[in-house]
């Protein structure tokens, strides 16, 4: 049974200006629908996201945070994947300390043409959050 009566959970997406944001734009262009409670904040690179911003999103009321990472396409270099992974690991630790379920933070590499994958991720994350998190 869903723990929330709502159809949609609030999800904050940290996208990247050059790689994943164009894919999210293209999802719109292709009219690939996803929950309208998904909001993006574009940053230059996913390895520049501060854990405090993610924690802040949970504190302010977001059910889930999704990092649409540059992955191996990062224009700033190969180290991005590893560094973004570290940010997620570090944030998971901080979430644990605050009793926030680690599954409420997800990350996937979204390349500049990964519109379908982004939409799929948003739908499944929304479903998970609706069923498991009190939104």
């Amino acid at each position: 049974m869903p723990v929330s009566n709502k159809k949609y959970a609030k999800i904050l997406v940290f996208s990247t200006e050059k790689i994943s944001d164009p894919a999210i734009d293209m999802a719109g262009l292709l009219k690939l629908h996803y929950p309208p409670t998904v909001y993006t904040i574009p940053v230059p690179c996913s390895s520049g996201i501060k854990p405090r911003w993610i924690l802040n999103a949970f504190e302010e009321g977001f059910s889930g945070v999704f990092i649409a990472a540059d992955g191996s396409d990062c224009p700033y270099g190969e180290s991005c994947t590893e560094k973004t992974g570290h940010i997620v690991a570090k944030t998971h630790e901080l979430m644990k300390e605050k009793n926030i379920e680690s599954a409420r933070l997800r990350m996937a590499a979204i390349c500049s043409v990964c519109s379908e994958s982004f939409v799929k991720q948003m739908k499944s994350f929304n479903e998970y959050l609706i069923n498991n998190v009190n939104n």
């Binding site: 940053v43 230059p44 690179c45 390895s47 520049g48 996201i49 700033y76 991005c80 940010i87």
Partner: peptide
Amino acid sequence: KGCGMCLPVCPSDSIELIAFSNKEIE
């Protein structure tokens, strides 16, 4: 290059990226 890779690693949170500061994002 303004990538921001230095931001999350700083233990004292002493680095901000112009136009992507804590106050703007938060």
